[in-house]
């Protein structure tokens, strides 16, 4: 069981309180009806599924209830950082990001 830092509770808390919510920074267009089939396909279906660093959403569902973003290494399962929903994708990652 992982420990996950909730950026709202400001604590490292047990994974049992959290739920993964898929890839982060997938932007829902403000004018969805006008999107081309290709753009909509990219928005709805296409995900990176990287080996290595992933930006993903979690919800502290059995805690403060907030959705937030996390950067995790899918190989080591290590969380590099977490940040609040709505915050920009970080431009640099903490030290051991490789």
């Amino acid at each position: 069981m992982l420990l996950i830092r909730c950026p709202y509770c400001e604590q490292d808390l047990p994974e049992l309180e959290f739920r993964n919510a898929g890839e982060a920074h997938v932007v829902r267009s403000g004018n969805l009806v006008a999107e081309s089939d290709e753009d909509f396909e990219r928005f709805l279906f296409i995900r990176e599924n990287p080996k290595g660093i992933i930006y993903e959403r979690w919800r502290h569902i059995h805690g403060c209830g907030r959705f937030f973003n996390a950067v995790r290494n899918t190989v080591s399962d290590k969380f590099l950082m977490t940040y609040k929903a709505g915050e920009k994708k970080p431009e640099s990652l903490p030290g051991d990001a490789k």
């Binding site: 959403r57 919800r59 209830g65 959705f67 929903a85």
Partner: peptide, 13 residues
């Protein structure tokens, strides 16, 4: 409830 919260918090905050 989860889906509503998701949209409210992340798409329509």
């Amino acid at each position: 409830m989860n889906m509503m919260e998701d949209y409210l918090q992340t798409e329509f905050p």
